[in-house]
């Protein structure tokens, strides 16, 4: 039982109160273990992003219990153990690519030089070294998303939560992006959970969870 990175038991999330309350997630139970490759599929508004936010400790469930047996307390999850990748590149506009990548390391109080070295190494792995000093607005969509991956990988997190990371990329770019991501994670015990509409991408993951109207179906 203790080998899970994150474990959710009957968690639910409701926004608002009374008649205007919106139930985004209903009594979901799941767990993510090291090296898991999981795709969450479902239509827009089905609760995928809500589930990822709860798994990453970005949000609190309205009901149920969530825990991180191998990662520790919720407060210490980010930036060291859990990393997010969002639908859009989510790079900070006023920082250069390398500064964006080293940001989580600096937030985790890694020394300046060490952070810079790790960031450059991550950019190397994603073949972005040449763009290190560019500003996000000077990158293409695919380059920016790869930079976001570099940022997620820089700290070598135990769990990466990607919320429709290829949603704004064209098909070939999206596939290339995913190839790179899976190649880098190959052999590591970093778990990857991806929310996606793309069934082709989902098919390349070891597990596929279904979301429908806030209800999660996890195959046994």
């Amino acid at each position: 039982m203790n080998e899970a990175l994150v474990r959710a038991a009957n968690i639910g999330r409701t926004y608002g109160e009374g008649e205007s309350a919106v139930v985004a997630l209903r009594s979901a139970s799941c767990e993510v273990a090291p090296a898991n490759r999981i795709a969450i599929v479902g239509p827009s508004g089905s609760g995928k992003s809500t589930l990822l936010a709860l798994l990453g400790g970005l949000d609190q469930p309205s009901s149920g219990v969530i825990s991180w047996p191998l990662l520790g307390a919720q407060a210490g999850l980010r930036p060291t153990k859990v990393a997010f990748v969002f639908q859009t590149p989510s790079l900070l506009a006023p920082l250069s690519v390398v500064e964006n990548v080293e940001l989580p390391l600096l937030l985790g109080r890694v020394g300046r030089d060490e952070a810079r070295q790790a960031a450059l190494a991550a950019l190397d792995r994603l073949e972005l070294r040449a763009l290190a000093d560019k500003l996000p607005e000077e990158l293409s969509g695919g380059q920016a998303q790869r930079a976001a991956i570099a940022r997620a990988l820089a700290y070598r997190p135990r769990l990466i939560l990607a919320d429709e990371p290829t949603g704004q990329l064209d098909q070939p770019t999206a596939r290339h992006f995913f190839d790179v991501l899976l190649a880098i994670l190959a052999g590591s015990d970093t778990a990857l959970v991806v929310a996606t509409h793309d069934h082709e991408i989902a098919a390349r993951m070891a597990e596929v969870w279904q979301m429908q109207h806030g209800t999660l179906e996890v195959p046994r």
Binding site: R78, P79, T80, A83, F86, L92, P94, L103
Partner: peptide, 15 residues
């Protein structure tokens, strides 16, 4: 948006 990203990346209150 910047601050939402920073929060998602795990910035503490002080940071």
């Amino acid at each position: 948006r910047t601050f939402a990203i920073l929060t998602a990346l795990g910035a503490s209150d002080r940071q």
